[in-house]
Design a protein around this nucleic acid. Structure first.
Length: 557
RNA sequence: UGGGGCGUCGCCAAGUGGUUAAGGCAACGGGUUUUGAUCCCGUCAUUCGGAGGUUCGACUCCUCCCGCCCCAGCCA
């Protein structure tokens, strides 16, 4: 599975030279999610990169929540994220860490900067701050509070911290360069007032550090050697380095950026995914149509498939769009190897075998997997009345054997794992709808080919009517009808595919599926891969989610 | 118009002065098959955003041009 020919990525190259030059002795990385939403496939790429890079170099990787904005964060997200990382199979070094663990230290460092006249409390409103910042092409103007005495800033900061100042009235800013062509350096905000309870520190703080003031210092505190983030943070790197240089931090982490993962027909923006959840466009963060890890898990996509996919991805600085077919390849690839084969009829049509005794039952033994003997066999009862899928039968005898490898009046077909049968006639209701097909089997064809002159058109799946179990199947189509739903403005909701969920009731499954286990993947032969849905009302309800259909070359033509 | 980043097959992507320009996905042929699945075999860039230049020799170095992405949150 792992492509040994795949060259090492540019970050590994950097690690190699850092190790060779002695800049670092142990590789330490970190996965730093903000707990303001659920993890999605894009995060999976980052998780794999960080954990695998550390492991490949004998280092370690931390899991750290960047919880610097209590207004948008919650313990629900913390728990979900931890579960998802575990599900992927990764173990972080030591305890789960939080930016909030370092609030005291960060505050001390803020005062350190003030004392060295590298930070000041600013009383510009947010609108004024924006105005003073200048534009992309023009420099900004210095804040009138820029040169106030350190002692004054120190007192004010203490007042901000203790809740004595209204939200929006003051910020702590770094004193860098209002003329910098890099806007991040135009006296960035280090602390802002938020009188909002934090999910871990409660109401202890009335001010919270900004991402820029927190992230690099957290990395330094944890001894992170390679701080890997996505491309949009490239401009923040000089600021990251500025703090590391101007603060008495215990280490010198370095930031490296790579291109985030985009997949067509998907949306990977926590903000937008949250919108889908909040507006009830989907069933929740774990809706099987969502690109979230929890949604994909519920859909039946395996952690291994996601990891294999992520590892196949290049780590580079280009921001491309990966074809969803590439992801689907890895989903099928893993499922094909591991899923047990069973039979299930989605749209039942009765087939009566007229030359088979009505009270006879044959206990057939059929392998769980065509090329994995280690998975063993299952018992499948064969009776005279069976269910076949309606679209596996046609009255049109003119249909060529090449175009329709299924049952046609007057011709033969193999019942998977059982006999070869010939369709003889049909019975219709008053509306002309076929209600039953009458057929005759060719004796002695179980496990053997039919006589030379009988050439079955193909193989179809079936289920004994008497022993079948009823089930329900959820089939999914892509959530968006547009390959790039995020292109253009915020109107991605306009591209929602309204037919992305199809619930099929009254499906008939072989008795084996009555024992279906949660978390197990099955292949419904000739249809696709399925798993039990985790939101069933009762434990013995049989509701299956279609993970993905089998590859289907024939329907394309 | 400032700054940062990127442009190699339909998609992803190796390549760091001399290779027949890897590989995967997709596509298209063919073989095996009691899943129209899997598996196997084969085909698929005289060309690297464009134009010049340096060089015996460039996707790789230089110059100019074109295109795309990110930055003006007290979000991350």
């Amino acid at each position: 599975m792992i492509d040994l020919n795949k060259p090492i990525n540019f970050i590994q190259n950097i690690i190699d030279s850092d190790l060779a030059s002695g800049r670092v002795v142990e590789i330490v990385t970190r996965f730093p999610p903000e707990p303001n939403g659920y993890l999605h496939i894009g995060h999976a790429k980052s998780i794999c990169l960080n954990f695998d890079l550390a492991a490949a170099n004998g280092g370690r990787c931390n899991l750290r929540f960047d919880d610097t904005n209590p207004e948008t964060e919650s313990p629900e997200y913390v728990d979900a994220i931890i579960e998802d990382v575990r599900w992927l199979g990764y173990n972080w070094s030591g305890n789960v860490r939080y930016a909030s663990d370092y609030f005291d230290q960060l505050f001390e460092w803020a005062k350190f900067l003030i004392k060295r006249e590298k930070a000041y409390v600013c009383e510009l409103t947010s609108a004024q701050t924006r105005e003073y910042r200048g534009t992309l092409t023009m420099g900004g103007r210095d804040s009138p509070f820029r040169d106030r005495p350190a002692s004054e800033s120190l007192d004010l900061l203490e007042e901000m911290r203790s809740g004595g100042v209204e939200e929006g009235k003051m910020t702590l800013r770094a004193r860098i360069d209002m003329q910098s062509p890099n806007i991040n350096l135009r006296d960035p905000v280090l602390y802002r007032i938020k009188k909002y309870p934090h999910h871990r520190t409660g109401r202890v703080w009335s001010i919270y550090p900004s991402y820029d003031f927190a992230h690099g210092q957290e990395d330094a505190l944890e001894g992170i050697t390679h701080s890997i983030c996505t491309l949009e943070f490239a401009d923040n790197r000089v600021l990251y380095d500025w703090f590391i240089k101007n603060l008495p931090v215990p280490a010198t982490p370095k930031q490296f950026e790579f291109g985030r993962l985009n997949i067509n027909y998907m949306v990977t923006s926590k903000r937008k995914l949250k919108q889908l959840v909040d507006e009830n466009i989907v069933d929740g963060w774990d809706d099987p149509r969502m690109p979230t890890l929890s949604g994909m898990r519920r859909r039946g996509i395996t952690a291994q498939a996601i990891k294999n996919f992520c590892k196949s991805l290049a780590v580079a600085k280009t921001d491309g769009v990966v074809d969803i077919a590439q992801f689907e390849y890895f989903i099928r690839d893993d499922l094909n190897k591991h899923a047990k084969r069973v039979m299930c009829v989605l749209e039942p049509l009765k087939l009566l075998i007229t030359n088979y005794s009505a009270d006879h039952v044959e206990d057939l033994s059929i392998p769980y997997h065509p090329n994995r003997g280690d998975l063993g066999y299952r018992r499948v009862p064969f009776t005279s009345e069976i269910w076949i899928d309606r679209n596996d039968f046609s009255e049109d005898q003119a249909l060529s054997r090449k175009k329709f490898k299924r049952l046609v009046i007057g011709d033969y077909v193999r019942l998977r794992g059982a006999y070869v049968v010939r369709a003889d006639s049909v019975i219709k209701d008053v509306n002309g709808i076929i209600t039953e097909v009458r057929a005759s089997l060719v004796p002695g064809t179980i496990g053997k080919n039919a006589p030379e002159e009988i050439k079955p058109r193909g193989v179809i799946h079936w289920v004994s009517e008497q022993y079948s179990v009823d089930c329900c199947v959820n089939q999914y189509d892509r959530l968006f009808s547009h390959p790039l739903p995020e292109s253009g403005d915020e109107s991605f909701v306009k591209f929602i595919n309204l037919n992305s969920l199809k619930v099929i009731y009254g499906c008939k499954a072989e008795p084996e599926l009555a024992k279906a286990q949660m978390g197990e993947n099955y292949q419904f032969e000739r249809i696709g891969y399925f798993c039990l849905d985790n939101r069933r009302k009762n434990d013995d309800d049989l509701v299956f989610n279609c993970t993905i259909g089998l590859r289907d070359n024939w329907s394309k033509t």
